[in-house]
Design a protein around this nucleic acid. Structure first.
Lengths: 332, 332
DNA sequence: CTGAAAGCGCTAACAT
DNA sequence: ATGTTAGCGCTTTCAG
């Protein structure tokens, strides 16, 4: 097909070794030879085949990113920052959308293995420790977890302190005078952690969570709406609702509107993530912010350090979430 | 590093050719041998190195996707459907975020070339015909354009009829009794096409666009807000605003609110794209829908057909946009 | 400073 | 039905 290192070598009347050296700036090459080779390369627009390079050399300079759903802005923003940082460091990223399907996730593990990516970043709900261990850790593939955490294996990760996030949410609501809270919770580990934090704040104020006001479900706007409607139609509806992500919170606002309730006058709503969505709802959403941009950058740094062998010990970076007060929460 | 085809061959006491054949289901292999080889493969969890395969074989089974910004839900949704369809067809996708930077876009062209992807899908604003031709078409790399179009080169593409989209938007507004319209326009070719369609409808009703009410700018919410504010503060503000995408339209709604105007009572707003954002604003946004899911699938199909040589002639698929009426537009 | 040659892991004729 | 062998395009000793 294309032109290769032999073609260049022949036309420049040197050996392929020489061409390789000028391309990679290795070894010693006379300025004259270098110039000549460069000229021919330029002339033919030659680009080394990185498959061949990767086959020989150490790295493929490709990372895998496993993510549930790019259409969700939270994941989109993280994917963007991962790609940005990877690019800065000379890596490409292969995107793998699991659509919250555990089998699909597992099949990506072996695919990325085959493709000989240098490392993989996992941002998913279904990381099954066994699958990860078997498919990635055991074959010696560098792995890093983002926004999720598996305490039981030694692995690089960056996440936020979900507990603190939930705690802050509750504190904010309590400060506004709310006593009876409803919760809409995504069915994944980190969301549970947020609930635990929420509860902690409640307890510190001698408040008790009514378990019947804690609803679990998949993280979509319509689902948030459905669950919130359920909460609001009860006998003794909550005066404030904490949804464990922005999508669910938005559904909650919609439910309130539909139910003839004003946010925040009749019911306060607080979300989690602080995606761009939080700024465009009406009222704008009070939420707990995750530093998505920073998380993406850091996880890439961690992974690249590991695979380059710069750092031998694993790290678990925990960032702190921050309350962002907008207009969806108000005094009881 | 890992275990390779030789290791398997040795342990199974066969040649590497045999192993290759059972892995790829080619040639004839006795059931007995096949079973034995499969066992060893299973035992060692062997996965063929696809770099090596790609080096020898025809395909790398990898596609490149060039896209401005994953954090924008419009692009996120398309990226998702591209990845989904690619996966169904056995291809991985390498994601390339240009951040609306033409240089970065160009550098991705050569990167993907090096990585020997089998084809590239471009969804970007900056496709410079010359750059594409030089870096991709000339080196014989299959290329497909999505949601954008370059009429002057023969290339596979799927897009919507932007002209019709704009036309529909205007018709809707005119039908509601609006006569004085403002436009907020992203500075890219397809947006201009939407404006042309808009104008066409106007002309058919003997209406004239006031050029001073046509504002150009980058497609972000804050920018939409800024421009809309400008429009609304004029001497003779428009009664309806057409923004060429949802982000700009959302900014427009925010501007109206800030300016003390009610949407749609005081000013109607219509957007373009129909991302999930359109459903969560208040009021929900009337907009022109692009079938993002379908576009993503089709472009992958087109590209894969081309690179497999199934189809020799290029296609330009044009889908029709659809008006989705929500609550942001109303009678004059 | 430059080149010859041995791989990297795999596929695909071509033999046997 | 199975094995031998010549590449694929490149990097990297090791000689000269």
């Amino acid at each position: 097909m294309g032109i290769n290192i032999f073609d260049i070598a022949k036309e420049a009347e040197v050996s392929i070794a020489t061409v390789s050296k000028v391309v990679n700036n290795t070894g010693r090459i006379s300025d004259k030879t270098r110039k000549k080779v460069l000229e021919i390369i330029e002339k033919h627009n030659y680009t080394p085949n990185s498959l061949a390079t990767a086959l020989t050399g150490k790295f493929s300079y490709t990372l895998g990113l496993i993510i549930p759903n790019l259409a969700n802005p939270f994941f989109g923003e993280i994917a963007k920052s991962v790609e940005d940082r990877a690019r800065e460091l000379g890596f490409s990223v292969m995107i793998c959308s699991t659509d919250y399907d555990a089998d699909r996730e597992a099949s990506y593990f072996t695919l990325l293995q085959k493709k000989r990516v240098d490392g993989v970043i996992i941002l998913s709900g279904f990381e099954d420790q066994h699958t990860i261990t078997r498919n990635l850790v055991k074959p010696n593939m560098p792995v890093a977890l983002i926004a999720r955490d598996i305490p039981t294996i030694s692995i690089n990760s960056v996440s936020i302190d979900d507990f603190v996030g939930g705690y802050e949410a509750a504190k904010h609501l309590i400060g506004l005078g709310h006593r009876r809270m409803g919760l809409i919770v995504e069915n994944i580990r980190c969301a549970k952690e947020r609930v635990r934090g929420f509860n902690q704040a409640l307890e510190e104020h001698d408040l008790q969570l009514d378990e019947s006001l804690v609803l679990l479900g998949e993280a979509t706007v319509p689902n948030g709406k459905k669950l919130a409607l359920q909460l609001l139609s009860g006998d003794e509806p909550p005066t404030a609702i904490f949804a464990t992500n922005d999508l669910l919170a938005i559904g909650t606002i919609q439910a309130a509107n539909e139910h003839g309730l004003k946010v925040p006058q009749d019911v306060s709503v607080i979300g989690f993530d602080n995606t761009m969505l939080a700024t465009i709802t009406d009222p704008p959403l009070t939420t707990i912010a995750q530093p998505m941009e920073q998380m993406g950058r850091q996880i890439v740094d961690l992974l690249v350090q590991e695979l380059k062998g710069d750092v031998t010990h694993k790290q678990r970076i925990v960032l702190l979430p921050e309350l962002v007060v907008r207009k969806s929460t108000g005094l009881r």
